[in-house]
C-alpha cells in the first residue's frame, strides 16, 4: 500500500487530499487531478467572492425567477431543508448580515469591499421564503444567498462520493480543517483525527477515531480564526440569524462528527450559535455522532466538553 497526498490552496483555505491505495502513481495523479478540478469548479461557480460566479449572478437577480444548474439546485434545496431542520439557526440568506458585520471581502482581506458585490443593505429573511421550481429558483427581492455555511461540507461529500465511484475507499480529505475520511491508514489502522486547540493551535485537545472504516466527516466551526474589527466593533463570521450579530454564546470552537460532511458543517455552526447545551440535544437525536466543544472557561482557561 502507498499513501499519496496533495496539498493545494483554494477557497482561501489549505486543502489536503490523501489517498491510501495499491494503485500506481500515474492513476492516482489523475484521480487527484480530478479532485483538484472539482474543487476549482466548485469555487468558480459558488463563491460569493467572485462577482461572475453562478451564486453572485443569482443574488443579482433576487426577486426574479432564475434558471439554475442541477448542482445549484441541490445545494439550495439542501440549504433550505437544513435551515428548517435547525429552526433557522442555519440560514443561507444570512449574507446581508454577514457583510454588515464586516465580512465583506474574501478572507484574509475581509474589509476588501471594493472587489466583491455588496448586499449589506439587504434584509435577512427566513429560508422558507426561497422558492424552488423544477430548474429555477427565486429569492425575495432584497435578500441574498451565501453557501459559506455548508459549501465545504457539500463539496467534501461530493469528492468522497467520487473517490468511492473510482473504487478508492481509504482516504482523508481536508478543506480548510473540515475533514472527511474513510477506510484506514497505511498500516491498516483507523484514521485518527486530532482536534486542534481553540486558543493554542499548536496543541491537540482531543481526537476522533474512525473505527468502523466507513465515511466519517468532521467539521470544526468557531470564532477564533475569521474575525476582525469593523466600525470599532469586534466581529467574527458566525452570525446569529435572529439577532443579525456575531454569535456570543461563549463557544470558541466546536468539532462535530457525522456521516455526511454537509451535516457536520451546518450543525457545527449551529452549536456555535446555539451554545454548548444544544450539542447534547443534537447527539441525543442522532443528528451528529459526537462533538468536542471548546468554550470560554474560568479566566484564560478553555473549557472542553466532549460528547
Amino acid at each position: 500500500m502507498k499513501i499519496y497526498q496533495r496539498n493545494l490552496r483554494a477557497m482561501n483555505s489549505a486543502i489536503i487530499l490523501t489517498v491510501v491505495t495499491k494503485k500506481d502513481s500515474r492513476r492516482i495523479d489523475q484521480l487527484l487531478d480530478q479532485l483538484t478540478a472539482r474543487i476549482g469548479e466548485f469555487e468558480r461557480r459558488f463563491s460569493r467572492f467572485l462577482n461572475n460566479s453562478e451564486l453572485s449572478n443569482f443574488n443579482i437577480r433576487a426577486g426574479r425567477r432564475t434558471t439554475i444548474s442541477k448542482t445549484f439546485m441541490e445545494i439550495l434545496t439542501t440549504a433550505k431543508s437544513l435551515s428548517i431542520q435547525t429552526n433557522g439557526l442555519y440560514n443561507p440568506l444570512i449574507l446581508p448580515a454577514l457583510q454588515k458585520a464586516g465580512y465583506k471581502g474574501s478572507w484574509p482581506n475581509p474589509g476588501n469591499e471594493i472587489k466583491t458585490l455588496n448586499f449589506s443593505d439587504r434584509a435577512v429573511l427566513p429560508a422558507t421564503k426561497i422558492d424552488i421550481g423544477r430548474f429555477w429558483a427565486q429569492i425575495p427581492t432584497n435578500t441574498a444567498v451565501d453557501f459559506g455555511g455548508l459549501g465545504k461540507g457539500y463539496l467534501l461529500d461530493n469528492l468522497a462520493d467520487y473517490l468511492y465511484s473510482q473504487d478508492e475507499t481509504s482516504f482523508w480529505l481536508s478543506l480548510g480543517g473540515d475533514i472527511i475520511c474513510s477506510g484506514h491508514d497505511i498500516y491498516s489502522l483507523p484514521w485518527d483525527i486530532a482536534v486542534q486547540g481553540a486558543l493554542n493551535q499548536g496543541t491537540n485537545v482531543a481526537s476522533f477515531s474512525n473505527n468502523r472504516g466507513r465515511k466519517l466527516a468532521v467539521a470544526t466551526s468557531g470564532i477564533t480564526k475569521r474575525n476582525g474589527i469593523h466600525n470599532h466593533k469586534a466581529w467574527h463570521h458566525i452570525i446569529d440569524p435572529q439577532s443579525g450579530e456575531p454569535a456570543a454564546t461563549g463557544v470558541l470552537t466546536v468539532s462535530v462528527t457525522a456521516d455526511k460532511a454537509v451535516i457536520a458543517d451546518v450543525y457545527a455552526k449551529c452549536i456555535v450559535i446555539g451554545g454548548e447545551e444544544i450539542a447534547t440535544t443534537y447527539k441525543e437525536n442522532r443528528i451528529i455522532e459526537s462533538f468536542v466543544v471548546q468554550a470560554k472557561g474560568n479566566s484564560t482557561k478553555v473549557k472542553i466538553i466532549k460528547g
Partner: peptide, 16 residues
C-alpha cells in the same frame, strides 16, 4: 480548471 489563488499542487508518495 484551477481555483483562483491556488498554488502549484504537489503530490507525494510514500511507502511504510
Amino acid at each position: 480548471n484551477v481555483a483562483p489563488g491556488s498554488t502549484s499542487p504537489n503530490t507525494s508518495t510514500t511507502t511504510p
